[in-house]
Design a protein around this nucleic acid. Structure first.
Lengths: 223, 223
DNA sequence: GTCTATATTCCGATAGAC
DNA sequence: GTCTATCGGAATATAGAC
């Protein structure tokens, strides 16, 4: 390692700073000047390493996308090896565990990528609208497939709806956006504590998944 | 009515166009040039009527904030007159009904304000961080209070957590952001149909509210 | 690889004629 | 009230020296 010196690579410092700022203030509101200043690098470095601001966003996303998918699918594999018919609760817990482990793996304090993912739902960046389905279609397919098997009292369409609600609730919960803070001066909950969030969230969403069907009469009418 | 002619007032046309564009692309990504062009008015009209872009956002928000609060509190009043102890399901349905009625009152197609509210949670606009608690604190207090009474098996702190999850799930559901579309090429659910969303959503969140406590041992340890 | 300096574009806001 | 023209600033991106 002849050229030691630098503690952290320049490109990594940029990724770290950008990840945090994108989550905190959004993509548009985060200027490259702010990013490079926070990272302690020159303004031109972003273009040198990532080509453009869009390229930087894609790189920020891609860095965590693969490890997260690998963690979750690993949990799901193990679950399906151990049990013939995993419950909805076990499937949800596999997902939550992956999110928390990712937050602990990354040297950063929180579940920053999960928060970034949550923001991406509400304001999808054009760069990702193309690459996300390709990368996550298998994960989504296996997640929903496991839920379908664990919820035999629901039609497949209704499981899709519940997965839709589940994903919204979970990602927003881990995003740490405290809804209550907007409505009351002194909210009780601490939305930033991921362990607490996970503990409170799992019973809520699992009960929602297990609930009776809202659409039992799916195909018995031909209006 | 001496000066007839104009079908819709200029300021109203601006509000309509801005409301839609803010929801679709966010505040920062929506330029005043885009708004005035969509509204078919002059660029300077925004500053003339609303003073600034921030003033316009505030006006967009304020136009729907009061009617929505009035609708929901009306439903809650009626509910508490009719029943001694309204169930969590009834409280949730009062909220959903208010959202849908607001969407039908406004001549626009969808539940645009509810979608705007959902976006506001994820990227809170500075202008609202001050005015929102003042306007909605009573609504939130009464909503949570009704839930606390309807869920006697939960501690007040846990009800606050569930309200946090509930609000996230509901607003995002009505926001019409199709999470599944980001993950799969051809999702089944149509997240833009508010009637369908309401029908699928209510059983999910009500079951989540009714679920057993995750924090039964709240105060029995003094670590 | 890293820096300075700059090109280019777009933004919100305003002045002033009509 | 409505318009044109423009100001001042900030953004991304790049050219070119070192």
């Amino acid at each position: 390692m002849g050229e030691s010196a630098k503690a952290v690579e320049t490109s990594t410092r940029i990724l770290d700073a950008a990840e945090l700022l994108f989550v905190e203030h959004g993509f548009d509101a985060t200027s490259m000047r702010l990013i490079t200043q926070a990272a302690g690098v020159n303004i031109a470095a972003v273009n040198y390493y990532f080509g453009s601001k869009d390229g930087l966003f894609k790189a920020v996303f891609e860095r965590r996308a693969e490890p997260f998918a690998r963690l979750f699918l690993g949990h799901l594999d193990q679950l399906e090896r151990q049990y013939a018919n995993p419950s909805a609760k076990q499937v949800v817990e596999a997902f939550v565990a992956a999110a928390i482990e990712l937050g602990q793996e990354a040297s950063l304090g929180g579940l920053i990528f999960v928060r970034l993912l949550a923001r991406t739902f509400v304001e999808p960046h054009p760069v990702l609208k193309e690459s996300m389905p390709r990368r996550y279609s298998e994960l989504t397919r296996r997640y929903i497939s496991a839920l379908v098997k664990s919820l035999p009292h629901l039609s497949e369409a209704e499981v899709h709806w519940r997965f839709h609600f589940l994903a919204n609730a979970m990602f927003n919960a881990f995003a740490g956006t405290n809804v209550l803070r907007l409505f009351m001066a002194h909210p009780i909950v601490n939305a930033r504590d991921p362990q607490m969030v996970a503990r409170m969230l799992v019973p809520f969403v699992v009960a929602g998944l297990d609930a009776q069907a809202a659409m039992p009469e799916l195909v018995d009418q031909n209006s």
